[in-house]
Design a protein around this nucleic acid. Structure first.
Lengths: 333, 333
DNA sequence: CTGTTAGCGCATTCAT
DNA sequence: ATGAATGCGCTAACAG
């Protein structure tokens, strides 16, 4: 038979309530009593039943993570970050794949809450922007934190990187190498980060006094094929770019492929840069310079906010991983 | 206030026990009563409390999935498959990253079981081969199913693909194209699939009457760098292979990089093949021919076995995705 | 600082 | 085919 707090209380010579106090780290328990109880717990290898705790108490010691089909790499980073923080808190994690396209999503989330009474919810992109879900969570009074939300920023605590600054940094890096004709491939139109990355690109050009040329900017949608298409157009221009900065790595991989086909050496003839959205960079050849996003840390921090109850918007720093961008051909001589 | 079965029973004009019967799909409830109850449930938007169910009953309506650092792609496929099957069964999924290197793993799993009383556990590679975990689960009488176990095959139900046959198929494909000198890069030594893939390679050669040449086989460890190293050695041979079959796609990507560096065209000068362990294939250039593993289906099927209680070992079919292997240069005319 | 009493929302056992 | 009583293991609200 599995031991219960009753057994523990008997062995420790205290009431069940006192055991409960120790379990929940409540104050007003003497050092000595606490020790006795903890010894009894260790002795019996007692582990409290989640079911009983959540039925009797206000907390379930569980949190849910909502996510939708981003790249497996992204999901993995997110899960790892959230899970790590949950472990520290002694809380279990409920994985909840979601379909933001489904009109039932909010209802499913509502049922999840009712069934499990989770203590809080972490929303990762793109579920962060499902208004119906936010409404549902608020209607039920469930705390939630969002990772890189695209809209409704004031509705909850959130954690994000600075996409504008990251794109600015990367563009500035290319400019500092000597590039003046820098192609840019915009990300998917529905993705807020796309606008921000474009903005950062423009800001860096402005600051350097390089005129913005619309023909160096192409629309993509975050996948390999759109990167290929945009790369082809950019390299067909009369005065083609000496560097191409794609809004993510899938598109950057597309550009690399196009360069291959044309016999361009990378980065000798063309420097290619991107973000590490899918962690492709380390497996590509020729190499890619990328913005390393702190996805795991974002998830970890977001979960921390959930537990602390703070309402804030945190920014976490990114990092430039230079691996394959050089000076433009003209000044390499 | 959240509705309970008490409210439902009042509205339906039956006892709480009858509501419980409907909830659990028990027999001996008249059609008419069942309908009335279901209407009441829908009317109140009643959702049963998981905590109360698992505290009172024998089932928790939760299963746990144990996994360790494989590629994010692998984990994602596994999770999706398991989760999909769980949804069909109305069961929640507890994500449980594990560290097979930790001596505490079995204990952590034991605590998980005690805390949550999960109805069953799915083990994915490499947790499948953590003997201490199997012992712990059996000691507690918790049903479990393993996905592609490497050892102790008789201890539980399992689901797997046929790695021998898959490697055989791929090798045969290359032979049929006209290749006679086929390089092979073995996977990580601790991975059972590595042996099997090597065996399949040899079997196909034998059947075709092609002598096995040890110098065409190199040891790798499933990562990009080991693929590069092995590729270099193979292409430096006096009579180099016209095709290289790597035991996974990370290593195959390494081979592609080496080919690039040497100015070899792929697949014109060299055909490269692999498995889709990390789903790299679609993002690589030049293209790669791969064995598509039914990872998602394996997970789905494994979860089904958990619910059915059957004790069997199932094999699921793989698929060859030919995308970039051609006849060897010598017979391309 | 510690104990007592009650009850969370269900499934179970045993009735009928 | 349905209902009544009991308790799962814990925490809440109080009392001391």
């Amino acid at each position: 038979m599995r031991p219960t707090i009753k057994h523990v209380s008997k062995i420790a010579g205290v009431s069940t309530k006192t055991v409960s106090r120790v379990l929940n780290g409540e104050r007003y328990v003497s050092e000595e009593t606490r020790d006795r109880v903890q010894q009894a717990i260790a002795h019996l290898k007692f582990v409290p039943s989640m079911a009983a705790r959540s039925l009797a108490g206000k907390r379930s010691h569980q949190v849910a993570l909502l996510y939708d089909n981003h790249s497996p790499h992204y999901i993995h980073q997110i899960q790892t970050g959230v899970w790590t923080r949950c472990m520290e808190e002694g809380v279990r994690l409920l994985a909840q794949p979601s379909d933001v396209a489904s009109p039932m999503l909010a209802q499913h989330v509502g049922e999840l809450i009712d069934q499990t009474r989770v203590d809080g919810v972490i929303l990762s992109s793109p579920v962060t922007d499902a208004i119906a879900v936010l409404d549902e969570l608020e209607a039920r009074g469930v705390p939630y934190v969002r990772i890189s939300p695209g809209t409704e920023h004031s509705r909850s605590s959130s954690v994000a990187m600075d996409d504008v600054q990251a794109a600015d940094d990367m563009t500035t890096h290319l400019i500092n190498l000597g590039h003046r004709r820098i192609g840019f491939i915009v990300g998917h139109v529905n993705h807020t980060a796309s606008d921000q990355r474009l903005f950062g690109y423009r800001r860096a050009l402005d600051r350097a006094g390089i005129p913005f040329e619309p023909r160096y900017v192409r629309q993509g949608d975050f996948d390999f094929a759109s990167g290929e298409a945009a790369g082809d157009v950019l390299l067909d221009l009369a005065n083609p770019p000496t560097a191409i900065f794609a809004s993510n790595d899938d598109m950057a991989a597309g550009v690399l492929t196009v360069a291959h086909r044309r016999g361009l050496s990378v980065p000798g003839d063309l420097s290619v840069a991107g973000f590490d959205d899918t962690a492709l960079a380390s497996q590509l050849w020729p190499p890619l310079t990328t913005v390393r996003q702190p996805t795991r840390d974002l998830a970890y921090a977001a979960t921390g906010l959930l537990f602390s109850g703070e309402t804030v918007h945190r920014r976490l720093p990114h990092e430039l991983v230079v691996r394959g961008s050089t000076a433009p051909p003209s000044i390499q001589s």
